[in-house]
């Protein structure tokens, strides 16, 4: 095979990779979209295609759509029986989600409120670089939540110790597994945020040294993902713009008047 043949082969391979990559991306987007549409349907609401498209816009949604490990499903047989009663399964999942949320909701609210206070102070002090506050906010938020989860799990040791002896070992094992995962998540989050902060600092220094006026309006893009986190600057929608800028967890911020059970369904 001559050079021309090799070039053609390389070009063909590159094209195939691009095509397959494109298909993969499309399938991936379609999966998220299908999941969201199905979820809304199972919740008994009818959303337009435009609305579903809007909801799946955020790349981070895909990560959050992965069910937590402790969702109770163990094997295929259970899945089959659950499929027989989709509505019942939905209620069950919702109930578990509500209970899990209620268990730690106060911790989440506290962590959110603390970071948001810092964000508000940053915004108040900063005239021009509000985007930096937003990026810092999202990073702090993610670290604070990862820390919150670790603290919560660590606090569960007493509860495990109080269990009957025959249940204790299994519960401790499960707690250890979750704690290890949470610590790993915390470590990765801290690393990611630190890397991003370092990048921001580097860019800021370069901007100062270069005095490049053109770069003054450029928002830090970093790794592309966490900028939206916390929605501090919004994503071009009136409602999300400046989301955490107001007065704390007003409205829905208070503890909801439910006992963690999906009622009326």
């Amino acid at each position: 095979m001559g050079n021309r043949g090799l070039t053609a082969l390389a070009a063909g391979t590159a094209a195939a990779v691009l095509v397959i990559g494109g298909i993969g991306t499309a399938a991936f987007a379609s999966d998220v979209r299908t999941t969201v549409a199905t979820a809304l349907e199972s919740l008994g609401v009818d959303a337009s295609d435009e609305l579903v498209d809007d909801l799946v816009e955020d790349e981070l949604l895909d990560d959050a759509l992965e069910q937590p490990d402790d969702d109770g499903s163990e094997d295929g047989a259970e899945d089959e029986s659950a499929a027989d009663d989709v509505e019942g399964a939905t209620d069950e999942v919702l109930e578990e989600s509500f209970l899990a949320w209620n268990e730690r909701a106060d911790l989440w609210r506290t962590a959110f409120a603390e970071v948001k206070t810092e964000f508000d102070a940053c915004r108040a002090e900063t005239e021009g670089g509000k985007g930096d506050c937003a990026v810092a906010f999202s990073g702090r938020l993610q670290v604070a939540f990862a820390e919150t989860l670790v603290e919560f799990l660590e606090s569960q040791s007493e509860a495990v110790a109080a269990l009957p002896e025959e249940e204790r070992a299994a519960a401790q094992e499960e707690l250890d597994r979750r704690l290890e995962k949470a610590l790993d998540q915390l470590e990765r989050t801290e690393e990611r945020v630190a890397t991003r902060d370092a990048g921001r600092l580097e860019r800021a220094m370069a901007k100062l040294e270069g005095g490049d006026e053109e770069s003054a309006d450029v928002e830090p893009t970093d790794d592309g993902k966490p900028e939206k986190a916390g929605k501090p600057e919004g994503i071009g929608k009136p409602d999300t713009a400046g989301k955490p800028l107001g007065s704390g967890n007003g409205g829905g911020g208070g503890k909801p008047d439910h006992a963690g059970k999906p009622g009326g369904r």
């Binding site: 909801l55 959050a64 989600s97 899990a100 993610q142 986190a229 409602d239 967890n249």
Partner: peptide
């Protein structure tokens, strides 16, 4: 309030039903 949007409520509902809502909070979704 500033930390509440209709879009966010729907995403939260989807995550409660089909995902990990705490992950969604931690990621700022």
């Amino acid at each position: 309030p500033s930390d509440l949007t209709a879009r966010g409520v729907l995403i939260a509902a989807v995550l409660l039903s089909e995902g990990d809502v705490e992950r969604g909070v931690a990621d700022g979704l």
